[in-house]
Design a protein around this nucleic acid. Sequence first.
DNA 1: ATATATTCGGATAAATTTGTCCGAATTAAA
DNA 2: TTTAATTCGGACAAATTTATCCGAATATAT
Lengths: 145, 145
Amino acid sequence: MIFSKACEYGIRATMYVSLHSLENKRVSLKDISREIDSPEAFTAKVLQQLSRSGIINSLKGPTGGFFIDKPTMQKTNLSHVVYAIEGASFFKGCGLGLKECSEKRPCPLHSRFKIIREELRVSLENTNLYDLSLGVKDGLTFLKK
Amino acid sequence: MIFSKACEYGIRATMYVSLHSLENKRVSLKDISREIDSPEAFTAKVLQQLSRSGIINSLKGPTGGFFIDKPTMQKTNLSHVVYAIEGASFFKGCGLGLKECSEKRPCPLHSRFKIIREELRVSLENTNLYDLSLGVKDGLTFLKK
DNA sequence: ATATATTCGGATAAATTTGTCCGAATTAAA
DNA sequence: TTTAATTCGGACAAATTTATCCGAATATAT
Ligand code: SF4
Ligand code: SF4
């Protein structure tokens, strides 16, 4: 819908990694894709992207896996995750995919939708991984049904 | 972004058709795709979809084209246009593309995003074609830059 | 050292979305 | 009645996104 599959898996994977990083546990690709119910090989690609972007860390070999240090969890917002996967274009231009325009010559939808677009941006920029995973840890939110 | 290309063209085309239908003018595919800057043949497909869905009307032959009668313009909301093109799935399940879930076991993003999702739905459901095209007619909003 | 468990990276394949082409059907005007 | 302008519908093509496969590199434990 709003996010591509890649981004969706990226967000879910990041949340799962964060959750276990709270207790300094590393999680493997296999664990992640099983627990977030995503195609393993494809998820691997997304994780690599996130790893290269510095959002998560990875370690090869036995007992290896993905993890995030707490400082990074604190300062990484969902917007960073989305940016790493969807790219800059997600955050500029019309949030609804319509043609470029100016505030002075808005299309008929603008007044209705700029609010939504702005809210989405703010929401993504104000939600960090640490807070998200605390919610899961405290049993307030869930990663699987 | 939120909408597929097909839907984007559909929305823009519908707005253009509405605008000219205010003065009982029919517009041709050629006009439409030129004025909303979209690929002609592809736009034709979308217009056919909208026509079959009863959102717009069409007439073949010279002086033919697409149009909407005013009563239909009044009662047709953007949500109908989106529904006709994106299908029912757009309006159910998670508006963010994440996996299904329940209100009782929400994912960590839910509280942040259900508001946005709801606003989008309401916005689409409360915006009819007549009002949109009046804005353009009155020079308040624009269809091209 | 060796075996094993993991991530990494490139190639490729499948699926979906986007886009094109063309002939048939329809309608209006000349 | 002929011609021209248009929508309609099906087949096809291109581009993008999603997904898989496999060997290489790396790190750990035995
Ligand atoms: S005017 Fe607003 S809604 Fe319309 S295309 Fe521009 S940014 Fe999008
Ligand atoms: S809990 Fe809300 S945000 Fe999360 S997947 Fe479900 S509907 Fe989407």
